[in-house]
């Protein structure tokens, strides 16, 4: 077992340093690159915090849809091939829900401020 602080705590501390101490000292192209860098750190933090439970749910859905067992990459490949072959399509029970859930989970990590994601999230909240 690795000791504390956790990876998330370490990354947050680095991002905070870059934002509070370095960003005010630089401008232009370097400032732009620093923003990209802190965005990348924030993305990794979200992935570390969110991915594990959501990956388990995704795997369970994939097992159900494909009727097979395997790793996430394996079953995603099987699903992709089945869709390409026309064996599974939007009339297949569960496919649309699965694709939506999986995509929403990706956006929560990749771009939680993307306007389409925020719109869909608001729609989910309104309907529950």
């Amino acid at each position: 077992m690795q000791d504390e602080p956790t990876p998330v705590e370490l990354l947050n501390a680095v991002a905070e340093f870059l934002r509070n101490d370095i960003a005010p000292q630089i401008s232009g192209a370097a400032a732009f690159k620093l923003r990209v860098a802190t965005n990348a750190i924030d993305l990794v933090v979200r992935q570390l915090e969110l991915s594990e439970p959501r990956a388990a749910d995704e795997l369970a859905r994939l097992v159900k849809l494909t009727g097979e067992s395997g790793t996430l990459p394996d079953l995603n490949r099987k699903l992709a091939n089945a869709i390409a072959a026309g064996a599974i399509d939007l009339r297949t029970p569960g496919l649309a829900d699965h694709l939506w859930q999986t995509t929403m989970d990706k956006l929560a990590v990749d771009q939680p401020n993307y306007a389409s994601y925020r719109r869909e999230l608001a729609g989910e909240k309104a309907s529950t």
Binding site: P73, N76, R77, L79, A80, N81, I83, A84, D89, L90, L99, T102, T103
Partner: peptide, 8 residues
């Protein structure tokens, strides 16, 4: 890299 939405 599989992306089922792209296949769709």
């Amino acid at each position: 890299w599989p992306r089922p939405v792209f296949d769709l």
